[in-house]
Design a protein around this nucleic acid. Structure first.
Ligand SMILES: [Mn+2]
Ligand SMILES: [Mn+2]
Ligand SMILES: [Zn+2]
Ligand SMILES: [Zn+2]
Lengths: 155, 155
DNA sequence: TTCGCAGATAGGAATTATTATCAAGAGGTC
DNA sequence: GACCTCTTGATAATAATTCCTATCTGCGAA
């Protein structure tokens, strides 16, 4: 979720989406699920299951890592969150909200969101018009972030 | 590597790139490395380390899976190959050759190459102009491939 | 050519990330 | 409050990748 969207207003619209998905699919809205969802929604760094678990332990000391994994898988199955495509060993997640794209620092692996309406509105090349049913498209931009560039120069 | 590029001419230009990278970096060109590279270069399906190992065992029965993993990591470090970004548990690889983009079937997970010069030549949005040093950008398009759509209808 | 050795390999053991199993716990309904 | 079902936490299991180490080899130097 992008910084500009992290308002209380937005949080409640996400919570409504969660309640709605529960209502439709019969999935129970347990305290664990609510907290996992809220923590992921407030995160801007595309955390892993383990990172989420760490962050949640203060509020829910008995929450098991397995429950975090199971909950994330459940949410992903219902389209509430996305498991990101990365080359890292740990999976990373984000809530499925506005369409956006990713900047990846190949040094520190930080993943930043950005918007690109020009890209979103463009079609797809002729070459792949008959491949099948196209559902969405994303751009990923790789490079070295300013923080890492600065480290290179000073350290 | 894309179909249209899999000619003998192209293979030898890739092998030259490999020899050159070895010369420059002091990396030894062992039979194992040569075979891993050639197998990956001739593959059009973005194989995993394990798939490459299976394919190579006929030619090199003593080749260990660990060597395939180490070799792929070495090649990636030298920029000869790319480890793909995916949400799957196994890593997938391709030789770093012409710039291209990926079509991903969310049903069968097949990854197809396509070209998109219009995208390649476009700049990046103003929003991220000061993020750091940008090195490359890629598009990923998700959907359901024709094969899987057909299965849905008949099966 | 041969030599010497830093760097590479094979194979098994270890580690890391994730998923499965299962007994116990809790929400929703009557 | 009993009952049914879904969910949880603890533990065990699995899958993917990396580490260990004894042995081997590509390749620069002589
Ligand atoms: Mn994001
Ligand atoms: Mn490719
Ligand atoms: Zn960085
Ligand atoms: Zn498919």
């Amino acid at each position: 979720m992008t910084k500009s969207m992290s308002s209380d207003y937005s949080d409640s619209h996400l919570l409504r989406a969660l309640r709605e998905a529960c209502r439709i699919s019969g999935m129970r809205l347990t305290p664990q699920r609510l907290e996992v969802y809220r923590e992921l929604a407030r995160s801007e760094d595309h955390p892993s299951a383990e990172e989420l678990h760490q962050r949640l332990l203060e509020r829910m000391p008995s929450l098991s890592l397995d429950t975090v994994y199971r909950t994330l898988a459940t949410f992903a199955r219902h389209g509430l969150i996305h498991k990101l495509d990365t080359a890292e060993s740990q999976g990373r997640f984000e809530v499925a909200d506005d369409t956006h794209h990713h900047l990846v620092c190949s040094r520190c692996k930080e993943i930043m969101d950005f918007h690109w309406p020009g890209f979103d509105q463009s079609g797809v090349p002729e070459e792949i018009a008959h491949w099948g049913r196209i559902e969405r498209k994303n751009a990923v931009i790789y490079g070295i972030c300013n923080k890492c560039l600065k480290k290179d120069r000073t350290g």
